[in-house]
């Protein structure tokens, strides 16, 4: 049952990812990416990582993708226009390199799983998947990285404003 749900989600996810990189208009790509992120959140919920699933929907599919869509609307992009043979060459190169990379990853996964392929999944204990456990980890073991993240976000905000500000005093 669980495997069937996983396979449905995985197929949707791969299909959506291919749409993201092949659709011509940026808005359609962004919508496909929102779809992929929601499906990935479903996968997280399937293995009991409910907090991460919620975070994925709220922050990724919500905030980040709205930012993307907002910028696409703001820039009012035209569709890509590139000379045909140039495009064909990069497409060929990209697909070859990407497939080679995929086989490399597959090789490592296969070697890593060679030792034993017993069923790796059992239901997660309730205490392990709760928000309380994540937050206590976050505020004890990972307190310093957590504080650093806030500095990172501040730098990103300041940087984005500085970059996008119009320089009109000249």
């Amino acid at each position: 049952m669980q495997l069937a749900i996983f396979i449905i989600f995985a197929i949707l996810c791969i299909f959506g990812s291919i749409l993201v990189i092949t659709l011509r208009s940026a808005v359609s790509s962004a919508i496909a990416l929102v779809f992929v992120m929601c499906v990935i959140a479903g996968l997280f919920a399937l293995v009991g990582a409910l907090f991460v699933a919620a975070l994925q929907v709220i922050v990724y599919a919500g905030a980040v993708m709205v930012l993307f869509l907002f910028i696409i609307m703001l820039l009012n992009l035209k569709e890509e226009l590139i000379s045909e043979d140039d495009k064909k060459f990069t497409r060929f190169l990209g697909i070859v390199l990407g497939t080679a990379f995929l086989f490399e990853l597959a090789f490592f996964v296969r070697t890593a799983l060679m030792r034993g392929s017993e069923a790796l999944y059992e239901p997660v204990p309730k205490t392990l998947s709760s928000i309380a456990v994540i937050s206590s980890e976050l505020f004890t073991k990972f307190l310093f990285p957590f504080e650093l993240t806030s500095v990172l976000l501040l730098i990103a905000i300041v940087g984005a404003i500085l970059l996008a500000k119009k320089k009109n005093e000249k």
């Binding site: 996810c13 791969i14 990812s17 291919i18 993201v20 990189i21 992929v36 990069t90 497409r91 190169l93 990209g94 697909i95 390199l97 990407g98 497939t99 990379f101 995929l102 990853l105």
Partner: peptide, 11 residues
Amino acid sequence: IFAIGVIGVII
């Protein structure tokens, strides 16, 4: 999915 992302960056 990672490989699809890599292909997207290249093409």
